[in-house]
Write a protein that binds this DNA or RNA. Structure first.
Lengths: 290, 290
DNA sequence: TCTCTTCTGAAATTATATTGACAGAATTTA
DNA sequence: TAAATTCTGTCAATATAATTTCAGAAGAGA
């Protein structure tokens, strides 16, 4: 039988009647700013509650802890559990595959990656990057590396539908100088670089930055060296149980950017979409969706 | 002028490029359990991240703190501010972006899609498809449509690393007959088709199936008509708050398949990977990952 | 008011945390 | 491959934290 570990909050409530005046002073101060008010050193905590350190020491022993460090640790465990708790919500959507099946291992890794990636995006940076991507006065160049070429391609296809003046720089770096020649201030370079970082891409980014082009970099959690010259950098978590890296979080961030860019300039975009639809109907390339 | 107090998370993000390997080890462990992993004593924190205490001390100084205690205090201040702030019941893994922000709406939609997709995969089908994809006796053809071309490209790049005899059929359908001419029994066709389904792709699938080629189809939740001739069909949920469809779940399934295929034939694959690595080293195209 | 009991914090003691110096390991560069 | 650089952990020193002791303060009851 596993014992249910009481939270410190509950412990305090239980022992409150037996606490002395100064001890209550501390108890109140902790409950008010829980758990932060209990996570500093005993000295600081005591000063904040305006009591002496022995008071705190005696009280945590009353609560059942061996000493202040143990009490501190208990608070920390609680906090940790709270933060990592929701991740376990994944249980719901595991498929019927057996425990160690690739599908389940994979879903776990992907969930973690997405979670990490999301919580590390700075929404200010994101908004700024989106505004940059929506700037139709300048040209938008898109480029990726060996693996991320596919993502660049995906980005290109979508951005092309949203706005004008989009260029996909082919992955053959021999042609890049021609593009650089035409780059000018106000242009944007959307660049994908995940490990193994490519020196070609770095050169390209440096040249572009020199010419006043704003570089939007999408990279992995370890950050490509290009971050040094990029106007906006985004880190995506990419680790999976495999010899290579996953690009799902990268794709997710990219799609979020596309969606936001579209929203940013919906008036202009809507018309483009309608015209595109018409064209598809005309060419009969696609079946009508039923 | 009020100073904008950067969060520790932001500080880490800003300094990440200049961090050393062990410092990143700690940075990752902290970001993973933020802020709990940084609120114990330097000794404990170091042990948890599996680095030495001086490493931590050096790093927090890099971040701009005078010493570990100052760093600890900064984390605590953040925690305190968060608890007393208005956004107390923040959604689990949403970033710090406001409620209705695109990032948060997007994360919700993506989570739902992945969840749906996962719980609708039949692990038997999955395993069977993987076995088919790992069959190196036959040739593996990969093809996608207007949007999914990028996914096909991604699949091609990875499968090419894993096995021999892989062909990416370009999206220009004019060239397809040439490929079909050479298709024979035992070959595999990995095909992506999401709405709007493309008639070209359907023709192609029918022709291939007639010739005894096993078709592995990755499509959306409404299923492309190609499912009728496919040996294995997988449905991916693709709806997001946008005028277009998301391909994150599609990508996820694809990556899971690649990972499983690689596992299936790891003995053969490992050697290919090593050789590939050597080649990259030789060409110096990529930086060594540090 | 006095005395007894209980509580509290100053100070001393002990334990632990933090930092700095250094040398070996790992990595990059020539 | 060898030299130079950078990184990383061990160890010692120093500082700080936690605990214990104890004398005085505060309150309760007579």
């Amino acid at each position: 039988m596993t014992k249910p570990p009481l939270t410190v909050r509950e412990l305090i409530r239980d022992h409150y009647p037996t606490l002395t005046q100064s001890e209550r002073k501390f108890a109140n101060s902790l409950l008010e700013k829980y758990p932060a008010a209990g996570l500093a050193s005993i000295t600081i905590v005591a000063a904040n509650a305006e009591v002496s350190t022995p008071t705190i020491a005696r009280m945590v022993q009353k609560l059942g802890f061996k000493g202040y460090p143990q009490f501190h640790q208990a608070l920390l465990k609680e906090l940790e559990a709270k933060v990592s708790g929701p991740t376990q919500r994944r249980e719901n959507w595991a498929s019927e595959a057996p425990e160690g099946h690739m599908l389940n291992r994979f879903s776990q890794a992907v969930t973690d990656n997405l979670s990490q990636t999301f919580s590390n995006v700075d929404s200010g940076q994101f908004d700024a990057a989106v505004r940059q991507l929506a700037k139709t006065e300048g040209r938008l160049y898109v480029v990726g590396g060996r693996i991320t070429r596919a993502l660049a391609d995906y980005a290109f296809t979508h951005f092309q539908a949203i706005r004008q003046r989009v260029t996909h720089m082919t992955s053959s770096s021999a042609t890049w100088p021609h593009y650089v020649l035409d780059m000018e201030e106000g242009d944007t370079l959307l660049l994908f670089d995940v490990r193994r970082y490519e020196t070609n891409l770095q050169r390209l980014a440096e040249l572009a930055a020199e010419r006043g082009v704003k570089v939007v970099l999408i990279t992995d959690q370890w950050a490509s060296p290009i971050a040094a010259v990029a106007a906006h950098t985004f880190n995506c978590w990419v680790e999976i149980p495999s010899a290579w890296d996953s690009n799902i979080s990268t794709m997710m961030l990219l799609e979020a950017m596309i969606a936001a860019t579209q929203e940013e300039s919906w008036d202009k975009t809507k018309e483009r979409y309608d015209r595109l639809d018409e064209l598809f109907d005309t060419t009969r390339l696609f079946r009508k969706f039923s």
